[in-house]
Write a protein that binds this DNA or RNA. Sequence first.
RNA 1: GCACGGUUGGCGCAGUGGUAGCGCACCUCACUGACACUGAGGGGGUCGUAGGUUCGAACCCUACACCGUGCACCA
Length: 885
Amino acid sequence: MSEELSKAYEPGLVEDKWYAWWQERGLFHADPASPKPGYSIVIPPPNVTGVLTLGHVLNNTIQDILARHARQTGHEVLWLPGTDHAGIATQTVVERRLRKEEKKTRHDLGREEFLKRVWEWKEKHGGIIIKQLKKLGCSCDWERERFTMDEAYALKVQEVFVDLHTKGLIYRGKRMVNWCPVSLTALSDEEVIPKPQKGYLYHFKVEIVERPGTFLEIATTRPETIMGDTAVAVNPKDPRYREFIGLSVRRPLPLDGQAILPIIGDEAVEFEFGTGVLKVTPAHDKADYEIGLRHNLPVIDIMNPDGTLNDLAGEDFAGLDRFEARVEAVDKLRELGILVKEEPHENHVGFSERADVPVEPRLSEQWFLKYPKTQEARAAVRDHLIQFFPDRWEKVYDHWLENIQDWCISRQLWWGHRIPVWYPANAECGVGNAEVISAAGGGTSHSEFPIPNSEFLVSVESPGEGWVQDPDVLDTWFSSWLWAHETMEAAALKKFYPTSALVTGPDIIFFWVARMIMAGLEYTGEVPFRSVYFTGIIRDKQGRKMSKSLGNSPDPLDLIAKVGADGLRFGLLRIAPQGQDIKFDEQQIVEGRNFCNKLWNACRFRLMHGAVDPAADPSKHDLSIFARDLLAKLDATIQRVNEGYEAFRFSDIAQALYDFVWGDFCDRFIESAKADFDSPRRDGTLAVMDFTIQRILKLLHPYTPFITEELWSGLGFGPQSLMESPWPDAGNAAPEPRAEAVYGAVSLARNLRATYNVPANKRVAWQFTPSEDWVNREIPALSLFLHAESLIACDKAPAGSAACPTDIGILYLPLEGLVDPSAERSRLQAEVGKVEAEIEKVARKLSSESFVKNAPPAVVAEHRQRQQDWVARLAELQSAIQTLG
RNA sequence: GCACGGUUGGCGCAGUGGUAGCGCACCUCACUGACACUGAGGGGGUCGUAGGUUCGAACCCUACACCGUGCACCA
């Protein structure tokens, strides 16, 4: 950098340079052999083919801040980066492309060829988000970048499957699962998002076979499943219906296959809902399936995996989509004359998180996990072995674990960790569950070959000839729940595990955080992290979530191009209070840039007054009141910042630094310093400036690493990187109330100027009656602050001037010819009004007997003081009015 | 339905019992020896509603309203 800094900070010119330099010097690398205490973070692995969002920016900036702060406070830091394979998302993207470009499905290619294509896609696009994180300045240890499909990691995933199976925690079972008819795979409960849907409650009647002329009225939201009904249920305690239990009704649909259904009694039926009569469809409803089990009902599966109806639904319905079939079914009921009414009705329907379509409850053969260490995991958080920030998430976490259900871990996908289970190649592929009547004729599983219900072997290695592997893969989260420990080799584990902090969004508290805790406890015997910081969600100005379809999510790289990575980081962090959602507005990012520019120019100003002394020591100088005040504020700021890190209050830290740099350092200290350059104070003032700038750069570095490194080097604090510089200690410099008094007086005087509309560029010959001796020494600074033509001491009020009483004396603004006394009088009178109101307020309190009696003495004394001050102020104002004549 | 969070000037927020604050926006003035990505000044709020506790409430308690989130098999 040249002697002269450019007039404005230009981030584009310096960011890449410093990032490369940090990497060359190996500053991001974590050494397990280091004697320093360890500090570690594992990145929440983004989707390998994803692109950076503002959410990632927030999340990763916080991690970078923690990592850089930890390095400066003397830790050996590991920030371990990587990506995950995002099974469904990635496979869907590649399939869509295949369909578009080659008009083929994955089945056309076959498994092996298809997976080759996915890997190609990953190689081509997989690096994007990593490059973006680098642009943002993330100080990850890139030598340790991991991917959930890395060979070693994948092996671990399979070994864990085998292990949990051996322990009896993983089992295969035919159960009702959440089926996504678009992705054609089972999902876990967590991947189902209930959404309120406006629909209808359809009422239709069925005749009781044994009592012609007597009808039962049934209410349903899903008439398209009537063809799968195998019973009608009422509550045995319901006096309206209990007499019918044991009789039967005729199922109206399909027309070509009307069946006689039993009327059964089951306590699960609510009296109040609908008509109190429930149609029971065991194949297509979780609750109905349970009823079916209790009453040994047949299960008729009328749907294909893609959500269309099959032959069992009858010829009128076969081939129709489930929602078309609903319309058709209602028409049929109407034609039969048994549709009673359609009642508008809102209910919650589970949607597939990925495909955003209603999931279909579906009976299918899947692999399930009984979670390990659930009670230990609850205890770890309850007893604060793991600390949540904000702590309110503890309750959410605990509630989930308390009601935890087994986890469906198999997915009917190709992209992912294949289930390490083997079947004899010649095994008979039975239906598996004899009472299921299924049109497909095969198993109710899904993939290109039905899962045999024969013996199987669980093993990572193939048992050899004659065995075929289970076609399905594991849920992506079944691999990422090992992320905290399986990404590290033994030496790293020893040094860096358990990790120090996890930074993530509350939306994956169940998906990932809770499961990682269980996996950590199961496989390392320890919690995987000490602290979990949950960020807020970034929303747009109207409070909506950022989403691609809404087009309301700005590209972080565009923002970086506009304001620099530092501007983006600082701007975003300043408005991100702990765990609260953030309403994003680009203006706030611009403020981040402005702040960087302010800092830049303050340093530029310093350089204009000669070389910086990196070893500057303020204690060797006789300092001005302003310099002493600044040092006290610096100590207080360091204190505030340290407290912020303790409590993970990142916006507080940003705000503290913003206030100090802009307000205390630039607006006040630098302005006062301008009076010192031609005085004996010069050396002391420069020393304080150098001392303070050095600390500002250190304190700001975690938030704005690029500009601070550039200035650190440019001002001559190097040659070592700022990253390696130790964190500053907070001293306990005493505050300097005299500086505060001067600033207060300046503010009052400027106010007075403005009141008289004295233009900002007009220099004024002020007069002044200082109240104390020391004030005389500060006349040059005061004069500068006031932009005065002159500032001359006087004993009494000069004629024709406006008086401005302050804590350091009375300032007089000459008004000759400028203003008529009546304007000044009315101004003062207005001021008197305000002061009298304050006096009245205090007096009212003090005259209250109960206040004086009950309030703590210190509070009462403080009120008395306040009253005195206001009364004195009133006297000054009144005397000013008199002087005016 | 249950739980959690939010409700403070136009906007975004801080403020957990003792004189309502900050940033932006707005209005006025100014290119004074770093910075117009700037400086100076100003106006603007009965702290969601209704009760209660207290000498004193934005803050504590109780309801309610609205917004957001999570959980919940009422078809």
